Structure formats: C-alpha cells, structure tokens
Simulated assay, not measured.
Amino acid sequence: MKVVEEIVERYGSARTILDPFCGTGTTALSAVNHGHDAATTDINPFLIWLASAKTAHYPAAVIAQADKAGKAALDLARREAVQPLPEPPIHKIERWWTERARGFLCHLKAAIRETVGHSGPVADLLHVAFCRTLIKLSAAAFNHQSMSFKDSTQCAFDLEPDAGAGFLDDLAFVLGGAKQNPPGNASVILGDARDLPGCLDTRFDVVVTSPPYANRMSYIRELRPYMYWLGYLVNGRDAAELDWLAIGGTWGVATSRLAEWSPSGARWLPDDLPSVLAGIASGDNANGALLSNYVAKYCEDMSAHFDGLRRVLNPGARVHYIVGNSTFYGVLVSTEQVYAAMLRKYGFTDVEVLPIRKRNSKKELIEFDVSATWPGA
C-alpha cells in the first residue's frame, strides 16, 4: 500500500515498528526494507505464515534449491507422475476452477509435497508461488466488494497449450523478491489485537497499520481459496468461526451471533455513538438491528485494542491508523472520529485526522490517516 510506504519512510532507521493488524504483511515488509525492526500480529494463522514467508531472510543456496525444486515439482505435475491430493472442500468448487485446472492444482500441490515436504523455507517459497498460480487459474473476480465469477470457458488454463507454465513465472517472481533480503528483522506473531500485552513482550516507537474497516467486508472470504488449498481450513464452519473471532467479521455464523450479541458495557465508547446506532437500527431498515450491533461490536473491539496498545509503546511513540468511514442506510459512521476519540480517552496526545483519498464514487466515503502520540505513563 503506497500510503503505508510513505508513512514508514518518514521515520529514521533506528525505530521499532508495530503493525497489530498484519494482513498480508505489507507494513512489516516495508519496515524491514527500510532497516527497521518490526513486529506484526494477526489472529489468522494463514496470514501469519504468509507474512513470515515474505519477511524472512533467504540465503542464496535456499533460493537456488527452491528454483530447482519448483521446476522438478512442475515436471511431476505435468506428467501426472505423483498421486494427486484430494480437492479442498470449498463450497461449489466448480465455480472457482474448471475440472482440468483443479486436476493440475491437485497434482502440483502433491508434487510440491513430494519434492520439498510440508514446511521449511524452500517449501514456503514454493507454496507462495502456488498461491499466486491457483488464484490466476480461478474464475473468481476480486475487484469489487461483491465477489463474482467469470464464465469458466474463459479460464486461461484451459485455453493455453502449455498448461501450468505460469507456475514457473510465479516462482520466478517470488524468488526475485526473496533475493532482496531486507536489512531489518520482523517478528510475526499469532495473537489478538484486542490483547496486545498478552502477545508482545517488547515496546515500540511507531505504529503503522490499516485495521479492518467497519464495512462488513469479510477478509476470510477473500482468503478462502488459499487457506483451503494449504490446509488452514477444512470446512466452512472453521472459516466462519475465524471470521467471528476477527474484528469486523460478519461472514457465516458471525451473522447469526451478531443478532444475539449485546454490548458488554465494559469498554469506553464515544458519547455520540448511541445516536448513530439508533439511526442504523431504525425500523425502516430491514437489517438495521443487525448492522447496528455490528457497528457497536466493532467499536467495542477497537476500544479494547486502543486500551491495550498504550501498554506496548515507548514514551513518545507515534501511531498511524489508515482507516475509512462507512455508511449504513444513509447513516454515516465516522470511524476516523471514533478512533480519534478513543485515542484521546486512553491518554494519547497530538491527535490528528488527515483525509487521504476518496474510497469510491460516493463522495462521503473517505480514507483517513488517524495519528497520535503516546506521551508515556
């Protein structure tokens, strides 16, 4: 993300940088590339693996071994000289990949396992390339909030005479990045952003992060293809449970649980939030009560996050939160102002809210950099 890169560049090299919402590791990678020591946390084990693979240091011998092993695995897959692994239990998997593409991916995944095993730096590099390949071969379109599927007859895999050759291109791309060993070091930690003191044992000078937005966007939904193929999910229930645990999750079982959820009263919330929630829950709105609960839970979770955040910061630490606002039934949820109020409540100073850019064609939807200073206890 360009915005994150620009913020990281503002700080000198002798800094420890934290991203408590890891995602695909963008902030951690930017930080170590600029010579910082970084830490990042996430509740999703797949994202922890991916960020770890992206920020690791790879000796030349490992990269050469991965290149050789990738070519060997592709040869096995092309010749179907290995017993294919079963297709992952993705609901209506035929919408995602054609039968021929699924067959190739099952053989390629088995060939990678046969060649380099389940884990280790070489396996990590091949699996990252595999993730790039599997999504390129799919019929899914991720360029808008409502995921759609292309006509399966347009699948590039089925139209190319040398099916699967794109894996070598993906591997070359991954290995090219792996050669750029960053000067900094990253710690990638499985943990809950609502309890940072429980998963971090050091303190930080800078926070740069883009947390989940309050927009009912399920991040698990976007990650399902990778997580199923790599074994991080085995059924839809697992995906829904993980989404429920995540801040801002609403997919599957999370939706039904939201209908029964009520605020704990244990977390500080802005004084003007009840009127916003009431507007969303208006009787004229079909799912108003559910979405009001969604916003309330999101704010309660973020309050817990900011409460814990101050306990892992050095005095004078500067924090940056890249976040967008949202609307529900025409009611504006000014997430940036919610963040600003919470930061002030928990003792942060010099709070600033800087508009960065419009998010889409709706003029009221804007992305912000909400920043503040932790003065110390």
Rank of each mutant, 00 (worst) to 15 (best):
L258F: 07
V276K: 00
S282E: 12
D271S: 06
S262G: 03
S292N: 09
S275P: 04
I247Q: 00
W251I: 00
A254M: 09
A254W: 14
V295E: 06
L277T: 05
L258V: 09
L273R: 00
W251E: 05
N285Y: 10
S282D: 13
D272T: 07
I280T: 04
C299I: 06
D301N: 04
Y294I: 07
S256F: 02
W261K: 02
L290S: 01
L273I: 07
I280A: 06
S292R: 06
I247N: 00
G265F: 01
Y294V: 09
W268R: 01
L277P: 15
V295F: 04
D301V: 13
G249P: 07
P263F: 07
S262P: 10
R267D: 12
T250Y: 12
S292W: 14
G265L: 01
A296N: 15
C299M: 10
L273H: 04
D272G: 10
L273Q: 03
R267W: 08
W251G: 00
E260H: 10
S256L: 05
V276F: 07
V253E: 11
A266K: 05
A296F: 04
G248F: 09
Y294F: 14
G252H: 10
L269Q: 14
E260F: 09
A254L: 04
W268C: 03
T255N: 13
N285M: 10
A254S: 03
A281R: 11
G288T: 08
L277W: 01
D271A: 06
P270S: 05
W261C: 02
S292I: 05
N285H: 13
G248N: 07
P274I: 00
D284C: 04
S282Y: 03
G249W: 15
A281Y: 07
